[in-house]
């Protein structure tokens, strides 16, 4: 079965690996150019987009991702990852530019403006999905070939094209596996969680990421 890579340069890498594992999907850390071949999908995690984009350029990974995308690699960016994938970044430059969206960085303010909410996104899951926004960007415009998955008051929070998924929030910081399942299906994989079942994993908690960094 195919593997999903999580870009392991900086950010919340292990949180994504933990969610993939809960779906029975093989997730691996990727950071060397050779790591990116033979992946079914690649997750670009949350972190700082300026840091990630600098490292992608310096170490020649940007080119590799662009090449693999042409060969069918599916991509998902959460928060900073969405900024890197965007075609246009207000007041900044585009890094990968693989989806026709325009984003505004850090659009809500400081950490005191970070928040959680819950919504139903029928195309992703039947049950409501908890959402976590941390110093989040906003998608303020999408191109004609991009489907909006979630529109909130005055901005877009999730969208996708055939090859790319973007979410400005962090499904990997919640007990919901719905978006990871959605992405796995997009990558042509078979996640172990059935749509009929609840996609809230009751065994997940906010410290689940620590199992990857035990001493």
């Amino acid at each position: 079965m195919g593997t999903i890579g999580v870009l392991d340069l900086q950010g919340d890498v292990v949180e994504h690996l933990d969610h993939l594992d809960r779906l029975g999907i093989a997730g691996i850390r990727v950071k060397e150019p050779a790591d990116f071949t033979h992946l079914a999908g690649l997750i670009i995690p949350g972190g700082e987009s300026t840091c990630l984009s600098r490292l992608l350029n310096i170490f020649g990974i940007r080119e590799v991702i662009l090449q693999e995308f042409q060969r069918g690699l599916k991509l998902w960016g959460t928060c900073a990852g969405a900024i890197l994938l965007a075609g246009k970044v207000i007041g900044g430059s585009s890094c990968l530019g693989l989806i026709d969206i325009e984003v505004q960085k850090n659009a809500f303010g400081s950490q005191l403006d970070s928040f959680t909410s819950e919504v139903t996104i029928p195309r992703v899951a039947r049950q409501p999905i908890p959402l976590t926004f941390i110093r989040s960007p906003k998608i303020i415009r999408v191109g004609r070939d991009v489907d909006v998955l979630l529109r909130q008051r005055g901005y877009i929070a999730a969208a996708e094209s055939p090859g790319v998924l973007v979410t400005v929030f962090h499904p990997e910081l919640t007990p919901s596996l719905a978006f990871h399942r959605h992405f796995a299906l997009k990558c042509g994989l078979n996640p172990s969680v059935d749509e009929e079942l609840s996609m809230i994993d009751p065994t997940w908690d906010t410290r689940s990421w620590t199992r990857y960094t035990r001493l």
Partner: peptide, 10 residues
């Protein structure tokens, strides 16, 4: 705590 998680590796 989660904001700090975003800073990991940085």
């Amino acid at each position: 705590v989660q904001l700090a998680q975003m800073l990991k590796g940085g």
